[in-house]
């Protein structure tokens, strides 16, 4: 089977689980009383600024970018934790933006989240066993002995053994890695299909990261999960993802199969980002692509291509017209005037 054919075959046989269309989230800027009196106009932080993508069943789709690029907000909008300003989110072809609270509650059984900070994502006054079993109770799925049995088997599944011991502990009695395992257990106890993992390993010690990532990948295979993985760490993204979307200032600038993004990055921002990642090899002297300045504020996003003030290759067109995310190959999209140009050449 040729590569191209395989790709098409896979595309045809894989169904979308989540689709995001023209999603926007603008947060109003908090102003002081005096400013409110003096100015009429209201500033907005354009955290997420018109993004469209879909996540396929059974894949790991990664949203990657620097802090403040809107990746976490996107994840929370999909889960209904933050209402979008505009745009639509579909879960298995059913629109889930603006659901009624009761419908949203039911949806929670099918999509879950793992948070970044394993220290803060547990109620300090609730035992681990109660916290993990709580979702079952809330949804009336199990209680008493049955709940206990489910919690025990889930704890065992995420590697917190002996589970009888962990069930009685309070969060502060667990190490960071153990807490993140417990958080994974809590997110899986309702048997969801779709998991948003928001930087699940960035606060975990280096020597433990791999175990957490491998656990997540094992569980994915075993329970047929789909992950939306959010990270700032492209090295981790490369290890775990099937497809990657790179975000810059609220927009997706490049998206595609992992191999495409990492071996043939087309957007200058992706190239710079990749070149800046430290490589664990003292013999390898790499060339870092220099970007001018730093990420501008999301309140005053530059005109035209939002990356042009920092782009080493910016041309006149870049200042005027905002590039659209366009297909450059079957599994690769990029939002850059120059990348398109090079495609024609």
């Amino acid at each position: 089977m040729s590569d191209a054919f395989y790709m098409r075959w896979r595309e045809m046989n894989r169904t979308e689980i989540v689709r995001v269309e023209n999603l926007k989230k603008y947060f109003p800027v908090e102003k002081s009383f005096l400013e409110k009196l003096l100015t009429r106009t209201r500033g907005f932080i354009r955290a997420v600024d018109d993004i469209t993508f879909s996540v396929l069943r059974g894949e790991v789709f990664t949203l990657a970018g620097e802090s403040g690029c809107g990746k976490t907000t996107t994840g929370k909008i999909i889960l209904g934790l933050v209402p979008p300003t505009s745009g639509r989110v579909f879960f298995r072809d059913r629109e889930i933006t603006n659901l009624k609270p009761e419908e949203l509650r039911l949806l929670r059984r099918r999509m879950q989240i793992i948070f970044q900070d394993p220290y803060a994502s547990f109620n300090p006054r609730m035992k681990i066993g109660d916290a993990i079993g709580h979702p079952l109770e809330i949804h009336g799925l199990a209680s008493g002995l049955e709940k206990r049995k489910k919690v025990l088997s889930m704890l065992e599944r995420v590697g917190l053994t002996p589970p009888e011991q962990f069930i009685e502990l309070y969060p502060h009695q667990l190490s960071g890695g153990q807490r993140q395992r417990a958080a994974i257990a809590r997110s899986l106890i309702l048997n969801p299909e779709f998991i948003v993992a928001d930087e699940p390993v960035s606060m975990i010690d280096v020597s433990l990261r791999t175990t957490i990532i491998d656990l997540m990948l094992d569980l994915k295979r075993e329970l047929q999960l789909t992950y939306l993985f959010i990270t700032h760490d492209l090295a981790v993204a490369k290890y775990i993802s099937d497809r990657v979307a790179i975000m810059y200032l609220g927009k997706i600038v490049e998206m595609g199969e992992k191999e495409e993004i990492f071996s043939n990055p087309l957007h200058p921002y992706t190239q710079a980002l990749l070149s800046a990642i430290p490589v664990p090899n003292p013999d390898r002297k790499r060339r870092i692509i220099e970007l001018k300045g730093e990420v501008p504020s999301a309140i005053r996003i530059p005109m035209g291509c939002r990356f042009h003030p920092r782009c080493p290759f910016a041309e006149e067109a870049c200042q005027k017209e905002e590039p659209e995310l366009t297909v450059v190959s079957a599994s690769h999209l990029v939002a850059c005037h120059l990348a398109k140009g090079s495609e024609h050449a």
């Binding site: 020597s207 981790v236 290890y239």
Partner: peptide
């Protein structure tokens, strides 16, 4: 256990 972005395929090993 540390991922290397330059390697095409990498199997990470964890410290238990």
């Amino acid at each position: 256990s540390i991922p290397n972005i330059e390697l095409a395929e990498q199997k990470l090993e964890a410290i238990p």
